[in-house]
Design a binder for these strands. Structure first.
Lengths: 292, 292
DNA sequence: GTAAACCATAGGATAGCCCTATGGAACTTC
DNA sequence: GAAGTTCCATAGGGCTATCCTATGGTTTAC
């Protein structure tokens, strides 16, 4: 069965006449007749009584007509929905790591809302490796994540670089020191994110570079929790600068480390082959604009 | 847009892979790719992100997918409804004149119900000329009507012949006469069916043949009403024999007319070109069986 | 780096639709 | 009734659009 057959069938049913139906469908009468006959063969029922002057629906034809009309209506709907749908390509799905999402996305989304009011942004928070995989699989339009990301299928656009800061409670001994070096941290308890976190990985490597293994007191999955625990004096942590917000300063002290300061670089990653939707372009535009 | 394109599109969406979709659709991969591309052009949107290993739906593709599936489901439904539908061709529409319908159809339908339990009979009561037109137009499968019917497009199958009887109230002077001739009726008031009724026409012609014009007291559209009025002594009438039923005999007297007795012949009429449904065949079979 | 997988393009084959022409049947008109 | 008109089906050739195989360019996997 094909749609043109259905279109021809409806034309005949409505005009009750093969010849006029053919005119209406812009085909010759024999072509239309043939297609109706083919349709009848496929369905196993005659669809019309050919009464000479008129063509009248058989019972089978009658039951088929309503269905045929609905099918064509659905097809038209589908075509129209896509054809005149500028609100398509307005929905994007972006990913971000736990150390980025809470501090960049809200403001970014806010800017987009004023600049591109019809843009719908879906945010997903996950660890770097998961984000990379999701972008590769096409589930995300783009993701904000820390480097390094080396997949050759991805476009990686660094957007800023920042130091990793020591975080300690106001009462913590380290908080009162004028300078803190990496090796000063060796004797203290760390509060870190989960094992899948790339930040945790980086911290562990940083400690290793300074010849000690961090003592890990607690693990949690959200940055806010880390801050809470640190604020209570249960340990220290290392967080990217972007995580430092005003409200923290009552209970927390952020300190740059002396010596070779640990850093991280944040980038936008996208799939090189993915069709770039307008929405994604707009989001990126707003991001670049904002960073200036 | 054509259905095969939609089928190909769904195959790709479900297998996330053009090559496997082509296998599933029993076409070569390039053919399928081409059709998907054509569909994308027609809709004005890319439907898939071609990511190398995977093909992932775009947003447009996602919205189209659900519609596409529904369209195919509707098509399948429609095809299936007709293909395995033996209960089709079970519904017939029969017509009958007012002087036939109440006296033949109920018993006929009753016989059909026992013999062909799945046969659905729709009955329509109308005057002969209207019935003929309806059969010609294809609205009725067949009709039971009095003759003559001369349309060359119709098959006319006479089924019985019967006399027309005088009907009078038990108290009516004519009811007590041993014999009644046509000319005896001239002085009496007639109660007849409407002007469109072929019986009325026949009665008027019959009276004309005997050189008088019937005095018409009342006109009504149902035979039962005629009988009521005649029973009350408001006039006489002439009805086909088949209209005489047991319950009438308390109040009515039916009398054959002496001389050249008026008759009518009842026939089944059908359209010669109409596709003869199984239901119509069954109905006719039951009718012929019953008349034996 | 090499092999395998995948999608797009190219070019020729072909199936199926469309066309014109025509036939036959039915309907209309005179 | 006879001629003319209308209507649908069939026939046969042309052509469009789909189909195929072959191939190239990428990407991915080993």
């Amino acid at each position: 069965m094909e749609l043109h057959q259905i279109r021809y069938f409806i034309a005949v049913a409505e005009s009750e006449n093969f010849t006029r139906a053919a005119e209406r469908a812009h085909v010759s009468q024999p072509s239309l007749s043939q297609q109706v006959i083919n349709l009848e063969k496929e369905l196993g029922h005659k669809l019309f009584h050919r009464l000479g002057r008129k063509a009248v629906l058989t019972e089978a034809g009658g039951t088929f007509l309503s269905r045929a009309k609905r099918i064509l209506a659905e097809v038209d709907d589908a075509a129209r929905e896509l054809s005149d749908a500028p609100e398509l390509d307005r929905r994007i799905v972006v990913g971000a790591t736990p150390t980025v999402a809470p501090y960049l996305l809200p403001q970014l989304i806010g800017r987009c809302r004023t600049e591109f009011p019809r843009l719908l942004i879906h945010a997903r928070e996950d660890f770097r490796t998961h984000l990379v995989r999701s972008v590769v699989e096409g589930e995300l339009d783009l993701a904000l994540t820390s480097l390094p990301v080396k997949d050759p299928r991805l476009s990686v656009e660094p957007i800023f670089k920042e130091p990793l800061l020591l975080v300690a409670g106001r009462q913590h001994p380290l908080a009162k020191r004028p300078t803190v070096t990496a090796t000063d941290l060796a004797e203290h308890t760390f509060i870190l994110l989960g094992d899948s976190s790339s930040l945790t990985l980086q911290i562990q490597r940083f400690c290793g570079d300074h010849a000690f293994e961090p003592k890990i007191g607690y693990r949690c999955s959200q940055v806010a929790t880390v801050k809470e625990l640190v604020g209570l004096g249960l340990g220290i942590s290392i967080l990217p600068q972007v995580c430092r917000v005003k409200d923290d300063l009552k209970s927390l002290v952020y300190k740059r480390l002396s010596g070779r300061e640990p850093e991280r670089e944040v980038a936008v990653i996208r799939h090189l082959l993915r069709y770039q939707s307008r929405g994604a372009e707009q989001f990126l535009g707003a991001l670049r604009e904002w960073l200036k």
